[in-house]
Amino acid sequence: MAMKIEIKDATKYIRKALILNHVSVSLQSGKIYGLQGPNGSGKTMLLRLISGLIKPTSGHVLIDDKELGIDMDFPPSMGILIEAPAFIDAYTGLRNLELLADIKQVIQKDQIIQTLQKIGLDPNDRRKYYKYSLGMKQRLGIAAAIMEQPALLLLDEPTNALDEVGVALICNIILKEKERGALIVIASHDGLFLRSLADELYYVTEGKVEKRNVCEEES
């Protein structure tokens, strides 16, 4: 379950544009890391780098001392919500999660149902995904990320489209995931939300990542 991620001097260019600029960060299990910064600062790209969706132009990403992109394609136990959640329009929320769970086959249907209930969605809802509201889609995206109890949880703007009750519910779920021992990285432009959860806060601007003290931020 314990996981250690080290990003060593990672730089990423996409079509000659500098997206990540010599990023070095160390992350470990049982903590919540917040990535704060304005739109387009590189928060999502940093999450994509950690998830193995993109490779650094230079530098390394090590997961438990194994290099991502060389020793492994993606972190072995990962839940992810990046950008807007997307599922198959023609299926119900439950069926979409069943299909995803079928790939790894580490959880059963009753655990998927429990996750849906935990996130505030009705497992018996027969509505297709395309009829879901934005908030329901976001909840389903978070359910997909957490249902297999991953060691690494990457959440990009998890409070998007959620009402106050939804945000409180998500905060509660994220804290429970932390108690379970997951390594959680949250990217958000909402400083207040991040400060309420994060053990360590990083400020991302123009591809540079700078560590901030959470207490200083609060003061």
Binding site: S51, L53, D73, I80, I82
Partner: peptide, 18 residues
């Protein structure tokens, strides 16, 4: 479609690209 709507991310978090 999966690339356009980014739903491939959920699959790639569970299985390698090959």
């Amino acid at each position: 479609k999966e690339k356009k709507d980014q739903s491939y991310i959920q699959i790639e978090a569970r299985v390698c690209r090959k």
